[in-house]
């Protein structure tokens, strides 16, 4: 198992180096930073001097190594737009996105799994059919559309929830949380529901089809023959066996939740990384874009690593193979 984790960590480092290369290429090939900094009226000498100062004359590999070296220390340079260290801006925005994504995943699991179990055990009931039809809508509606519909309904017509923003935040060290204030909780509801809707329906459908398959297996039949209660059969024996695919999909979807957050954050003007990225795109703020890219891939890689380790916790057959 240790060997497995080490090999996965090495793979992850490889992935991060590749992503770093792409992020770095943004600086080199998208626009000229010297132009951006000095403006069109600077003299050729000034340009050459700044080039040398910034190390832009060094060979590609040296520059790349320098970029990686700084990135590892969290140094992505100054934002063109805000003239502040990128890492500070990212750190400010990170809690908003992290909370939004986590709440969305939590909602998706909390609602999706029970719905999936129900639809899997009672595939013929009208409620299961309703779940399936509604989930079809959930899968096919684009995020920005559901977001806008929810805003119109709950914020404008019913006036129950705020239409945008994060509400009041409480600082816990450098981490700003919106989960401890009433207005923060009210604010996170609409965007997290919007963000989780797709995952929720995906998880529900996944659990349902796994359930349908598992209730037909011999060990479930034998569990019935042993006279176990339906609750033990479905929630202990069957559910645990559906978990491996659910963990895989949830892990992969965590990544896309962070990616989809760009849209949701734009619709709800949620002050997170996604909104920051969109603004950086409009402004041509390359350091912020590069940092966002690296950060999002880091999340992807970390979550996947975590998921791989979770498999071992759930499935004993994997454990014995690696010890």
């Amino acid at each position: 198992m240790i060997r497995f984790i080490i090999s996965r960590i090495l793979q992850s480092i490889g992935v991060m180096l590749a992503v770093g290369l792409i992020a770095f290429a943004l600086f080199t090939y998208v626009g000229d930073p010297v132009n951006n900094m000095l403006g069109p009226s600077a003299s050729t000498d000034d340009r050459a001097r700044l080039r040398t100062e910034l190390g832009l004359d060094d060979p590609f590999l040296v520059q790349y190594a320098r970029f990686i070296g700084r990135a590892v220390q969290g140094d992505f340079g100054l934002s063109y737009q805000y003239a502040r260290p990128v890492i500070d801006i990212v750190a400010e925005r990170l809690p908003a996105t992290a909370e939004l994504s986590l709440v969305a995943v939590f909602l998706a699991l909390l609602v999706g799994i029970p719905m999936g179990i129900y639809a899997g055990i009672r595939p013929r009931s009208w409620l299961s059919k309703l779940f399936m039809s509604v989930s079809l809508i959930g899968v096919s509606l684009p995020t920005f559309f559901t977001g806008i519909v929810l805003i119109v309904l709950f914020a404008i017509v019913l006036r129950w929830l705020p239409p945008f923003g994060r509400g009041d935040v409480v600082m816990l060290g450098w981490w700003s949380t919106g989960l401890l204030s009433w207005s923060g909780l009210k604010s996170i509801l609409l965007p997290s529901v919007t963000l989780s809707l797709f995952q929720m329906t995906l998880i529900m459908r996944l659990v349902r089809s796994e359930m349908l398959e598992i209730v037909r297996t011999d060990y479930i039949r034998f569990a019935q023959a042993r006279g176990l209660t339906s609750r033990a059969i479905y929630f202990r024996h069957a559910l645990k066996n559906t978990l491996v695919p659910v963990i895989t999909i949830t892990g992969l979807q965590m990544g896309s939740i962070i990616a989809f957050a760009v849209i949701t954050e734009t619709v709800f003007q949620w002050p997170g990384l996604g909104l920051l990225f969109i603004q950086a795109l409009n402004f041509g703020d390359i350091p912020v874009m590069a940092a966002y890219l690296v950060f999002v891939s880091l999340m992807f890689v970390a979550i996947n690593l975590f998921v791989d380790i979770l498999y071992f916790v759930v499935d004993p057959r994997l454990r014995s193979g690696w010890t």
């Binding site: 011999d218 042993r226 006279g227 176990l228 339906s230 024996h237 645990k240 066996n241 499935d315």
Partner: peptide
């Protein structure tokens, strides 16, 4: 009903199936 039959199964009447490789839940000791 299934609920009433459950009380009979295991306690009064048990069953053994063909394939021992698949009769046990792999995720529990």
């Amino acid at each position: 009903s299934q609920a009433e039959m459950r009380k009979v199964r295991g306690r009064i009447a048990g069953a053994i199936f063909q394939d021992p490789m698949t009769s046990l839940n792999p995720l529990f000791t």
